[in-house]
Simulated assay, not measured.
Amino acid sequence: MNYIETTKEEKGKKIKLFYEDYGEGQPVILIHGWPLSHKMWEYQVEKIVDAGFRCITYDRRGFGASDKPWEGYNYDALASDLNDVINTLDLSNVTIVGFSMGGGEVARYIGDYGTKKLSKAALISAVPPFMLKTENNPDGLDKDVFEGFKKKIRKDRAGFLKGFGDNFYNYDKNKDRISDAQKHLDWSIACSASAKATIDCVDAFGLTDFREDLKKFDVPTLVVHGDADEVVPMNISGRKSKELIENATFKVIEGAPHGLIVTHKDQLNDILLQFLKK
């Protein structure tokens, strides 16, 4: 198994991040969403490698096969982990692609480290620019939404994750696009994550303001969102990210839920590959 050691320590220990690395050519890093792992990119990795790119996926700390420290789930730490992946693998001219929570790593990485090692960036069903409702962000979600997530996770994490999976795919409307077996696979991946990481990351993706980070984007950027996303609504996320990122390309997939990486994978893959090749 492949692991990268982070430079940022927690309680005096470095964190080991699991990663997979396939193909040759220009590197593309795929950053997974909450509460899943690198495995969520199954239907994208093959297409990217076959198109002539080097495709790297990794598990966020606390998830998948990576170490599961008790603390360290803020976006500065997570962006530092992404920076360690890029530096350890000696990558340049990289495209970083973040899904949902992973879009926060893309934004904060650029905010903290700039774009000198990047070629492009992509935000898919992503949480930036700012999920929380505040006086200067009136279209956001009430803090009670995120507190409710944490309360339900603490009460019955497995039960919460099962219901979240239904919302992730708008299952009642997409039964012809996704099987119960796929939902169960996602549930098992999510259940294998650290319970503490699962809770702490709710605050990370729910309360972090990425608006200043997005203003620092100066590489070609793709923003993709489904207009039926019930987890990260498009009008408070993807559409506003497009407005803040100079010269961003905004693609809306009609009828697509949050989990369009599976339900609308053919449309998403076409959009992503066109962007990578451009």
Results as ranks from 00 to 15, higher is better:
2 N>A: 14
4 I>P: 06
13 K>D: 09
17 L>Y: 11
19 Y>G: 02
21 D>L: 04
21 D>Q: 01
23 G>Y: 03
24 E>K: 09
25 G>N: 08
26 Q>F: 06
27 P>E: 09
28 V>F: 11
30 L>K: 03
31 I>Y: 00
37 S>L: 04
42 E>V: 13
45 V>F: 04
50 D>E: 13
50 D>T: 03
53 F>R: 14
53 F>L: 15
55 C>W: 02
55 C>E: 01
56 I>W: 09
61 R>A: 15
62 G>L: 04
62 G>M: 02
65 A>Q: 10
67 D>E: 08
71 E>D: 15
72 G>R: 04
76 D>F: 15
80 S>V: 04
80 S>I: 02
86 I>D: 10
90 D>Y: 03
90 D>C: 07
90 D>G: 09
93 N>S: 11
96 I>E: 02
98 G>V: 05
100 S>Q: 01
100 S>F: 02
103 G>H: 06
104 G>S: 10
105 E>N: 12
110 I>N: 12
114 G>F: 02
114 G>R: 09
117 K>V: 13
118 L>H: 12
123 L>C: 10
124 I>K: 10
126 A>G: 07
130 F>C: 09
130 F>K: 13
135 E>P: 02
141 L>P: 07
141 L>M: 09
151 K>W: 04
151 K>C: 00
152 K>C: 00
152 K>Y: 13
158 A>P: 01
159 G>R: 04
159 G>F: 02
161 L>A: 09
164 F>L: 08
166 D>Y: 14
168 F>P: 05
169 Y>V: 15
171 Y>R: 11
173 K>S: 15
174 N>T: 08
176 D>A: 15
179 S>P: 13
180 D>G: 06
180 D>L: 15
185 L>A: 12
188 S>V: 12
189 I>T: 07
191 C>R: 09
193 A>Y: 02
194 S>F: 13
194 S>Q: 11
197 A>I: 03
200 D>I: 06
202 V>P: 01
204 A>M: 08
208 T>P: 05
209 D>Y: 05
209 D>H: 04
221 T>D: 00
225 H>F: 06
227 D>P: 01
227 D>C: 07
228 A>L: 01
230 E>Y: 13
231 V>T: 14
232 V>G: 07
236 I>P: 06
245 I>Q: 04
245 I>L: 08
246 E>G: 14
249 T>Q: 15
249 T>I: 14
251 K>D: 08
259 G>Q: 01
260 L>W: 02
261 I>Q: 13
270 D>A: 12
274 Q>F: 01
278 K>E: 14
